[in-house]
Design a binder for these strands. Structure first.
Length: 163
DNA sequence: CCCTGATTCGC
DNA sequence: GCGAATCAGG
């Protein structure tokens, strides 16, 4: 796989649109995330107008004395949020009648709130239940709702994010 | 463990 | 120029 003009243009476009290096690599196919990062550096387009998140500057701060913290009352356990609430931060693109044989069936929204639907994006194969992004989360073990929340917010391309 | 971009360096 | 390996983070 070489960086011909077409692939380079696609890379430039997707990267400047704000997709992450791994998302660009998946989109292009045949290249790794490292290859994409290497290329964007050589092209000198490393900075984007709409970064996924603000530049974080790595500042090594010497370790301070460990914070001592009074033990929290054992009873103060926050209730876990139900998963339907956790997944509300994306807009569904498909209702149940819109689903085709290769639509992502990842549920989005809350049935009781009337905004329930499905991701609806293309699956890779006809029989797959989810699009590539949601496949990653569907078969992963999550330890807590906040983990699902974090994954939901960062795993999908920016333009579909509502928050 | 999932992920992010940055850097290095043998090819 | 290329990108795997590594680093340094979230």
């Amino acid at each position: 796989m070489d960086w011909n003009e077409e692939r380079t243009a696609t890379l430039r476009k997707l990267w400047l649109e704000g997709l992450s290096a791994s998302q660009v690599a998946r989109q292009l196919g045949g290249v790794s995330r490292s290859a994409v990062i290497g290329k964007i550096h050589r092209l000198g387009i490393t900075a984007r107008e709409t970064p996924i998140r603000p530049r974080t500057v790595a500042v090594r701060v010497s370790r301070q004395a460990p914070r001592t913290r009074a033990a929290a009352p054992a009873q103060a356990r926050p209730a876990l949020r139900p998963q339907v609430a956790v997944m509300e931060d994306l807009t569904p693109t498909a209702g149940i009648l819109d689903l085709s044989m290769h639509s992502c069936r990842w549920p989005i929204g809350n049935p009781d709130a009337g905004d329930f639907g499905f991701c609806g994006r293309e699956t890779m194969s006809k029989r797959a239940s989810y699009c590539p992004d949601h496949t990653q989360g569907a078969f992963r073990r999550f330890r807590s709702p906040s983990e699902i929340d974090a994954w939901t917010r960062q795993s999908l391309p920016q333009e579909r994010r509502v928050l």
